[in-house]
Design a protein around this nucleic acid. Structure first.
Lengths: 148, 148
DNA sequence: ATTAATTAGTTTCCTTGTCAACTAATTAAT
DNA sequence: ATTAATTAGTTGACAAGGAAACTAATTAAT
């Protein structure tokens, strides 16, 4: 097989796997009233201590309108705080609350439990190789998509 | 790094890449009034000559309500034919029309053009390795998800 | 200094995708 | 044979996600 034939197979599988993971994530997080995307935004707010919406849009390749809505939802659920920035009044700093922390911890437990299941079927070396290829792909796609 | 740490990194990247590809696909297919999912359903109808909705739900891991609506859309666009099955009157055979064929061909051209771009940045061996790992992952996830 | 351009985030409108309840056909159980 | 259970697909209600137009603040250009 040449590259031209390999490409669509890989794209197909990536799309398929991505879809399955998204659905699985949604199901896992259902008890917390969050879906996979909302979780990833919450997670990303926890990671860096001070974030605004723009940071996350860049990092997670999300639509700004979408982020805006999720941020509002997380705030209404009491999971994050919103503090208007003094440097730039257009944007505000997002930070995770105690309740948000707790929720996140519980979510992570659920996710870890599932990870242990599937990861047990693959050996460590293959995981490393896979992580490498995915990082590579991720960068390539990110560049391609950003440049137009 | 142990497996426990590798797992979430891999999942994160797969979700991120999946999201980027879906968006890219939607953008590429915009001129044809199709999105990535609708394309994949149309594509899947072309592949096997006779399919019903159930076949596709299994193969593509999609919601049956969703498939039902997409099928209706494709039919309204004149891209597929629907012929009630004589063996089982609940279901019908889906087949691609001439117009559907043509559309599909054009879509594929666009997609191929894009594939050539990104694929040029990776060497063939890595593509093979990646395809292998992805196939492996795909099967693992598919089983995990199907068994509850 | 004033105007123009850019940027962060919001709102509105619309399409997509999901869930649950439903219909009608088929199969299994007694 | 009749009833019960299962199955293929549809429908309606609703949440999620995206595009575009918009507001208000900031920065650049003259």
């Amino acid at each position: 097989m040449n590259k031209k034939e390999l490409a669509p197979l890989i794209i197909g599988k990536l799309l398929n796997i991505g879809g399955m993971l998204q659905k699985k994530g949604n199901k896992l997080l259902l008890p917390f009233n969050l879906n996979q995307q909302q979780f990833s935004i919450l997670f990303s707010i926890e990671q860096k201590k001070k974030v605004n919406q723009k940071n996350m849009i860049n990092k997670l390749v999300l639509e700004k309108a979408h982020v805006s809505k999720v941020v509002k939802k997380l705030y209404n659920m009491g999971l994050i705080d919103i503090e208007t920035s003094s440097e730039d009044k257009r944007s505000s700093w997002l930070s995770i609350t105690k309740k948000g922390q707790d929720t996140l911890e519980k979510c992570k437990e659920y996710i870890e439990k599932w990870n242990e299941e599937w990861v047990s079927e693959i050996d460590k070396d293959q995981l490393y190789v896979l992580l490498d290829s995915l990082t590579n792909l991720q960068n390539i796609f990110k560049n391609q998509i950003e440049n137009k």
